[in-house]
């Protein structure tokens, strides 16, 4: 009887300890981080030796839920978007062609570029303030969603509210989206487009501390 009681007490203690460990490890309330200022740039080679086409946008927006765990950071509900009209290459006619031949849907719509991922883990690098995040999600170009992996390097900026500076790179293949690279008088960009992303993320105040969900 006594042995049985001791066993039950031990079982409860182990359960409490286990719950406590799990709670500390993964259930820090997530905080919503919003992209405050972001830039995205792209670059692709062409069939002409020495010529590349590059462009950029400063209109990146997005949000992510961030929580700390023993392994580093846990990112959830990752969302980012770039208005196609904000992408510029320096030549307005080339921008017009880019929008027309690459980003316009068959029914004439011009949807934003969107990236979404459910979850990603970030592991610390060098210090506890710097992380590398392998984010696997989906990128939508002219409404077509395709898998895309982005490697982000994030650095936590000190103090409150919580903020991060992050940068990452990805490779997008136009053919994955059914897009044929357009040609202009024999000059044609390659199928592979290198994308670079840089942004500052800052804790959003529009978050309930108890649930971590954005209103």
């Amino acid at each position: 009887m006594i042995t049985n009681s001791i066993f039950k007490v031990c079982l409860v203690a182990v359960a409490i300890c286990s719950f406590s460990v799990l709670f500390n490890a993964a259930s820090d309330p997530p905080q919503a981080i919003e992209i405050q200022s972001g830039n995205t740039s792209f670059q692709t080679i062409t069939n002409v030796p020495g010529l590349e086409v590059a462009g950029k946008s400063s209109a990146v927006s997005g949000r992510v839920l961030v929580s700390r765990n023993d392994a580093g950071l846990l990112l959830q509900q990752i969302e980012a978007s770039v208005p196609v009209k904000s992408l510029a290459t320096g030549i307005s006619l080339r921008d017009e062609h880019m929008r027309k031949y690459i980003f316009t849907t068959s029914d004439g719509q011009l949807p934003d570029l969107e990236f979404k991922a459910n979850e990603a883990s970030c592991v610390p690098v060098a210090t506890t303030q710097e992380f590398t995040c392998h984010v696997s999600g989906e990128l939508s170009i002219r409404g077509v969603m395709k898998p895309l992996s982005v490697t982000l390097r994030a650095k936590q900026q000190g103090g409150a509210p919580l903020s991060f500076r992050a940068a990452g790179d990805a490779l997008v293949k136009l053919s994955d989206y059914g897009i044929t690279p357009p040609s202009q008088f024999g000059v044609r960009p390659a199928n592979e487009v290198r994308v670079h992303l840089e942004f500052n993320g800052k804790e959003s105040r529009q978050v309930t501390a108890s649930t971590g969900e954005a209103r």
Binding site: G50, L51, V53, A54, G90, V187
Partner: peptide, 22 residues
């Protein structure tokens, strides 16, 4: 705009003179 040399736009890679179609 990323045009590091003249050969993309000029018929002669030295630059100057006639332009190609691009």
């Amino acid at each position: 705009l990323g045009y590091t040399n003249c050969s993309t736009c000029h018929i002669s890679p030295q630059g100057g003179g006639l332009l190609n179609a691009y």
